[in-house]
């Protein structure tokens, strides 16, 4: 039977490429019996969605619950520093346009 270390290899691989039928079956079988590996698979899946969490959430329509959000969304308020940097970028874009 496949052991945990090999199972984690397949859990990781399936996020990057399709598994063979044999790999898929041995992984499913192992996961049925091993709760630690089930936790691991969930957490790999979460790491896989980290990129979307970065540039996806901000475009979601803002409903009434938007104020309750924190984390990445908490940064969604521009500071003076950010506004200043945008002004600098605008000046630079204008300067490049004229050159």
């Amino acid at each position: 039977m496949m052991m945990c270390k090999a199972a984690t290899r397949l859990m990781s691989k399936q996020l990057d490429a399709p598994l063979t039928a044999r790999e898929r079956i041995s992984l499913r079988f192992h996961l049925m019996l091993c709760s630690a590996c089930r936790n691991c698979e969930k957490q790999f899946g979460m790491l896989h969605r980290v990129g979307n969490a970065y540039n996806g959430t901000i475009d979601k329509p803002q409903d009434g619950s938007a104020e309750a959000s924190s984390g990445v969304n908490a940064d969604n308020v521009a500071s003076d520093q950010d506004l200043l940097k945008v002004k600098e970028a605008m000046a630079e874009a204008e300067a490049r346009r004229q050159n």
């Binding site: 990445v72 940064d75 521009a78 950010d82 506004l83």
Partner: peptide
Amino acid sequence: HKKLAAVRPRLLSF
């Protein structure tokens, strides 16, 4: 431009 300023912290951390 306001939106750009608002998204800048996240761009930066990325």
